[in-house]
């Protein structure tokens, strides 16, 4: 039983990491990732990632916000305690619109942030990579590609050979 978490390859440039990602994607790996100090344009395609699903969370939040606003105002000003103000209708979608619009945005924004965190499984208090000394440079100026040992195609010698062929100057094993 190996205690290795995965094999990590370091790159100096975004292009280096991207070409490596294309190779790893084409080799059919599933449990692997690229780590960069900033989002690299084109990396999603190089990794073969699908469009992010965050939009659905935000959409759900927005719909909830708008419905809540409209129903709340109808309930309060028309149903539960109607007060006549200057002969205006007890409920009008027009005067109820601004608060409902703001609630749409509010819950839509919570949906976007919450959706991002849920899809990314964050917050996460511990990660094997964060213990790896060299990995500290991921927030500085280095680019990393990690293939996990949990991947069905993982084979220590073969995987290392694949990563060596990408031109990475530094390949190491990461402990669990």
């Amino acid at each position: 039983m190996s205690t290795a978490y995965g094999i990590i390859a370091e790159f100096d440039t975004p292009a280096g990491a991207m070409h490596a990602a294309e190779k790893v994607r084409d080799a059919g790996f599933r449990k692997w990732d690229v780590f960069t100090p900033f989002p690299v344009h084109g990396m999603d395609k190089a990794m073969g990632l699908k469009n992010s699903k965050v939009g659905w969370f935000s959409f759900l939040g927005g719909v909830t916000g708008y419905t809540t606003g409209m129903l709340m105002i109808w309930f309060m000003n028309r149903f539960d305690y109607p007060i006549l103000i200057g002969g205006k209708p007890m409920f009008s979608p027009f005067s109820a619109f601004p608060p409902s619009y703001e609630l749409t945005i509010l819950l839509g924004a919570f949906g976007a942030l919450g959706g991002m965190l849920i899809l990314n499984r964050l917050p996460r208090l511990h990660h094997p990579l964060l213990k790896h000394k060299r990995f500290e440079l991921v927030t500085h100026d280095k680019f990393f590609l990690v293939i996990e040992t949990a991947d069905p195609r993982y084979d220590e010698a073969e995987t290392r050979k694949l990563l060596e062929s990408t031109g990475s100057p530094r390949i190491e094993l990461v402990e669990e």
Binding site: A21, P37, V40, M47, L49, S58, G62, A112, N120
Partner: peptide
Amino acid sequence: LGWTGSNRHWSNYEKAYLILAGL
């Protein structure tokens, strides 16, 4: 929050950022 700079995370992050900008 345990951010690692994972590209799978950046992908969702950038989408969320775009939506927040849109909102």
